[in-house]
Design a protein around this nucleic acid. Structure first.
Lengths: 244, 244
DNA sequence: GCAGGAATTTGCGCTGGCGCAAACTGGCTG
DNA sequence: CAGCCAGTTTGCGCCAGCGCAAATTCCTGC
């Protein structure tokens, strides 16, 4: 059950720099600089299924995910949902304001219980000027997201559903895969519906595909859970030229 | 016939700041600062159908389009082409390096004879530091392209072909429409195939749709030419909820 | 003015994947 | 521990849009 987002503020305690020192985003900053970055932040817990921010809402903050997984979702006026991406540990997100927007273009939903650092947007220009490598890293992240999104456009334009779903699974596994005795498992709850919303198809079709793949021993899956047993076979499927 | 790209260098003459003073990208810069920006640039002419840069090639420069229209195209290993976007007058493009890439992720092809300013990438960090508003404007551009691309993902995921083509036409008309006595014309040559590559369908389907729309008086079209007579009707088509 | 070729149109048959509907399952709640 | 419900599976029929093919039109270069 989605309990209400409990914005438990860090109660006056200084955040420890070890929280972020290991993140590539902050590479090159000295201990003192990390402390300075953290001085502007607070740490917030987001229970599973709660919204970190909502589409169209005033963009007041940007975020760095310390723990958990976040689903970024765009909803159309007609009520269709499309999953824009998943955010994993260590990534920056909600940077709308740094890109000249005043509202968030999508919603961010905690896929599991999450912890994030939150900075008010007012600090963005100050921080990115004071720590140019932080600014540059953020823009690089934006750049690679643009590339990924273009890749998705290409996939949606040229591939069959089966290839798209295979690609999506492989991407999730590479991004967040946890080794288990069965194979590599996507380490957050993900439904057939979610996969459908990532690939532009329906949960029915995803269900049929996963069933067929399970039959053939490529994966094992359960409720909101997918484990890839034979990634190579999936790659073959994903790359398999269609007849267009 | 695509003649060879003729990189006619500006022969030692200083570029006039009036070339770029009116562009939003350079808003806020003084006359002296504009001159300084231009000192690092050269002006190059690209004949129709020539490549400004090629996908996978080493990213050596970034560009500002002074005149013409440029088609940005991604080609898949299987040989499918997807049009990523059209660049119009005044826009910056080829900023791969500023986003941490060493190669161009797509090709840029002159849709008509074009003129662009070209800066070596080596100057990027210097220029964006010296003229922060220029850097910020560029990143805003990247941000809005990311949003547009997400919108395209949503369209590809949730809309029927007819809606997608209608949306694409409306976007082209808004971006580059020229008023004529017939209606609003897309002011560069665009084929059915091009429209198909923008919307993830085939030239046959696009042809059928345009024929039907012409029949109904919404557009008039010819070879590589589309004129929208009734934008409102197209909007209705584009927004028309499908049955999903 | 004519030949050649690129762009477009149109017909036809087929099918991938969707919509709809119903049944089933596993985990959580009271 | 019974019941409920979200998530999943599966069958069935249909159709939007693709592949293929052929005809036609318009533009360009000679």
């Amino acid at each position: 059950m989605p309990t209400r987002p409990t914005h438990e503020r860090n109660k006056g305690l200084a955040l420890d720099r070890s929280l972020i020192a290991r993140l590539p985003l902050f590479k090159g900053l000295t201990a003192a600089e990390l402390d300075e970055m953290l001085r502007g932040a607070r740490s917030v817990r987001y229970p599973k299924q709660s919204a970190v921010f909502e589409q169209e809402a005033e963009a007041h903050s940007f975020f760095v995910l310390l723990d958990g997984h976040i689903r970024v979702v765009r909803t159309t006026p007609e009520g269709h949902q499309v999953i824009v991406r998943y955010i994993s540990e260590g990534e920056i997100f909600g940077v709308a304001a740094a890109l000249g927007r005043t509202t968030y273009p999508a919603s961010a939903i905690a896929a599991v219980d999450c912890v994030a650092l939150v900075w008010p947007n007012a600090l963005w220009s100050e921080l990115s000027l004071r720590f140019p490598s932080f600014g540059a890293n953020t823009y690089k992240t934006v750049g690679s997201r643009l590339q990924e999104t273009h890749t998705r456009v290409v996939e949606l334009s040229t591939e069959q559903v089966e290839q798209r779903v295979a690609h999506a699974l492989l991407r999730l596994v590479n991004q967040t895969g946890q080794k288990t005795d069965q194979g590599i498992e996507i380490d957050f709850p993900i439904s057939r519906q979610d996969i459908a919303e990532m690939t532009g198809t329906t949960l029915h079709t995803v269900s049929r595909l996963l069933s067929a793949w399970e039959e053939r021993g490529l994966i094992v899956s359960g409720r909101q859970k997918v484990t890839v047993k034979d990634p190579h076979a999936l790659v073959v499927l994903a790359e398999h030229r269609d007849r267009r």
